[in-house]
Amino acid sequence: MSLVTPTIAQDGVLKMPIRKDDGWYFPVSGINYKPVFIKVDMYHPYCDEYGFLKDGIQVGLIITSLFAVSFFVKLVVKVLNGLGQFKDLGD
């Protein structure tokens, strides 16, 4: 409810959400311009806290695997280039 900005209606009444004991209420124009407060039902969809963690671990493993593969490919290329240097010593 903090994102709801207070507004001034055409009749000059300040309309902003009001917190009472059992929830949030929002004024609407009633009979004789007397504000009537309607309870705002907050609906929050189900949120799986571990879903984001699982997705992060999956992306992290993919990125780590790519770095590991590129490291070992570079290592194998260096080793193979190093073996080519010692071929002239046997002659």
Rank of each mutant, 00 (worst) to 15 (best):
Q58G: 04
I31K: 13
E49I: 11
I38P: 02
L53Q: 11
F37K: 03
K20C: 00
D55A: 03
E49Y: 15
I38W: 01
V40P: 03
E49K: 07
K20Y: 04
W24H: 14
D22M: 02
V40C: 04
G30R: 13
Y25W: 07
D41Y: 02
W24Y: 12
I38Q: 11
L53R: 13
K34A: 06
K54E: 11
C47A: 12
V40S: 04
F26H: 08
V40N: 00
R19W: 03
G56I: 10
Y25G: 09
P17W: 00
D48L: 14
K54M: 03
L53H: 14
G56S: 08
Y25D: 06
P45W: 10
I18Q: 04
L53M: 10
Q58W: 09
F26R: 06
G56H: 13
F52Y: 09
D48E: 07
V40A: 08
K39A: 08
P17S: 04
P17Q: 04
D22Y: 06
Y50Q: 07
D48K: 05
P17D: 11
D48S: 09
I18E: 10
S29W: 00
G51D: 12
K20D: 00
H44K: 05
G56Q: 14
P45M: 07
R19P: 01
Y25H: 09
I57S: 15
D22Q: 02
Q58S: 07
D48H: 13
E49F: 15
D22T: 01
G30F: 04
G23L: 02
N32G: 00
W24F: 07
P35I: 12
M42I: 13
Y50D: 03
N32T: 13
V28Y: 02
Y33S: 06
Y33H: 12
Y43A: 15
G23V: 01
S29H: 04
Y46M: 06
R19G: 00
G30Q: 05
F37A: 10
D41F: 04
Y43D: 09
K39M: 10
I38C: 09
P27A: 03
V36Q: 02
H44G: 10
G23D: 02
M42Q: 05
E49V: 14
F26L: 15
N32F: 12
E49C: 10
S29M: 12
P35A: 06
H44D: 09
Y33P: 08
Y46P: 01
P45R: 02
M42C: 11
C47E: 09
V28Q: 01
I38M: 08
Y33D: 07
F37S: 07
H44W: 15
I38F: 05
P27L: 06
L53S: 13
Y50R: 02
F52L: 14
Y46R: 01
Y43P: 13
R19N: 00
K39H: 08
I31M: 11
D55P: 13
D22G: 03
F26A: 04
V40R: 07
